[in-house]
Design a protein around this nucleic acid. Sequence first.
DNA 1: GATCCAACTTACAGCGCTGTAAACAAGCTG
DNA 2: CAGCTTGTTTACAGCGCTGTAAGTTGGATC
Lengths: 341, 341
Amino acid sequence: MKKVRLADVAKVAGVSMKTVSNVVHDYPHVTPEMRRKVQLAIDELGYKPNLTARRLATGRTGMIAFAIPEIDHPYFSELSRYIAEEASLRGYRVLVEQTLNSLSAEQAVLNDREAGLVDGVIFHPVRMQALDIAMLRRDVPLVLLGESTMPVTADHVMIDNVAAARDGVRHLLGQGRRRIAFLGLVAGDITGSTDQRLLGYQQGLVEANLPLDPQLVFSAPDFSPEAGAEAVRRALDSGIRFDGMICRDDRFATGALHALRGAGVNVPEDVAVIGWDDTELGRWATPRLTSISPDKRELAATALEMLGERIGGLQGIGRHRIASHSLSIRESAPAGASVLL
Amino acid sequence: MKKVRLADVAKVAGVSMKTVSNVVHDYPHVTPEMRRKVQLAIDELGYKPNLTARRLATGRTGMIAFAIPEIDHPYFSELSRYIAEEASLRGYRVLVEQTLNSLSAEQAVLNDREAGLVDGVIFHPVRMQALDIAMLRRDVPLVLLGESTMPVTADHVMIDNVAAARDGVRHLLGQGRRRIAFLGLVAGDITGSTDQRLLGYQQGLVEANLPLDPQLVFSAPDFSPEAGAEAVRRALDSGIRFDGMICRDDRFATGALHALRGAGVNVPEDVAVIGWDDTELGRWATPRLTSISPDKRELAATALEMLGERIGGLQGIGRHRIASHSLSIRESAPAGASVLL
DNA sequence: GATCCAACTTACAGCGCTGTAAACAAGCTG
DNA sequence: CAGCTTGTTTACAGCGCTGTAAGTTGGATC
């Protein structure tokens, strides 16, 4: 079975190529009779338009790239789902590009040896910084995600991390917690995520006239649950006391829950724990994890919205949008006063 | 900044388009001097080849589609990661297609949606059956994943689900468990996954001369952890007794762990639990979940291997490959004799 | 120095589709 | 019924690249 081309259909139907094209695209000014005749030929030959050729002719690919560190990180896989859904709603297909936390892979996303592959890019960097991004960025429409410092030239969506962290702290304070820890700093992390969350955490404490105890800020060697668990274990071993904890992400929080239980510390009775990202991992942790919940669908929708406008030709300085967040309250830091009180 | 074309570079370098193309492709028979001259022009103009045009000319897209039910399902997101990595190793980019368990979306995968877009498709169906697939399938290279009955015309990779389930049962038997339950059947599930796993479970019991008690096969309304928890709760409420459980996937198992703890049943002391898929969700459940572990990397590598051969022109009947599996033993069903004994 | 060969380079015809401009048809108007 | 419209269809030139076949060059060979 040879490939069927537009020209073949045209010949069989006895019309011009363009008329066939018009039928394929449901162009309104085609007489019903002509449409019928062409459709018949299409069905008979089993014609399928060749998308590559269409792209070359139109210059539009109908595809966007979604570049993230790891596709199987719970936050990114959940976000991917919304990106895929929102993209599909707008007629785009999604090419997922996994950077695996490598600088060169991130650079490749922007630099891309090849052009014309996608109409636009949604990019969550973790290694590149504002300046690198600004320098390397080509004229492909671009929307950035995440909390790195971002160049003013590109659009950007994020949640208000400082406010969200503060919300988390307030929730713990409302339960009567007074020694609240933060997990975790990671050496070499140049994204602003941790910094902003830490800042919000500190603001929350300061608001309540509580001291900032550096001992209560835990570091971890990497972003795995193991690392989070290890950090908490070390803190407990050093005799550091705390009754609340806010974690940089659900993976850390999940590890923390394991470490706490391992040490005989009860959650939430002895220590209330809040995670971040509101992922399935945390929803089914034990106890179920209270977590700061970025509105992932809104994040995805906003990114696609802005990207669509850029693809449509919108020029001008980068826009900065804040998506909403909330606190998903579950067992690890329930609502109401703590049992401690 | 206008788009730079091959012809522009050729003009600046004072050579033919084809020579520029040869330089871009590192074609060996180009004199160093010529190469230098051309490279200079490329750098000066900032030329990037247009992939769409290249594709139209060569007929190869360098992309494959990976069609799965849900991108944020832990098993599929982890598998996606390996698919992305293995694809990248072989010079392919991956277009992720989310079918959201919809029949029409699955049909679209095989039907026209991908015409000329991708060189091949890796597809994990959950709604389509062998016949539908055989009927709809176009001549795009195709590799199937999963346990649905598959048409003989297409390549297929899976693990030996029956053997894997048997292995799980044997593990529980080795701990002295005798009343082993299976979670869970789902109405409307037409994939063979559950059936095969159930069969292996039954074989394992029969091997040990244990009776097959239909009460010990739990049904759930859908595939969520909630549904798994609910199924277990119902069983406990009905007074059904069991000391071991093998779950159709980690989501069910995670839900089951919650239900058991909620009922005051200790895992693994009272009931040992085995999940399936060996996902991060289970690895960080409490207790950490013992899980049947399909070798996801091997699955991905094999699928890409076979797809590559098909793209290379290999004809002939569908090949059926089995990837390996193992049991990841953790706290929920540890090794060694049970504390019950 | 004529001949041949290998190594390199070029010209150009597609790949399959769409946008444009021009052609044609049919219905109205005066 | 010529002259306009409006509506419908057509012809064809690209989109940017690569494969092919036909050149060109420089050196080795006799």
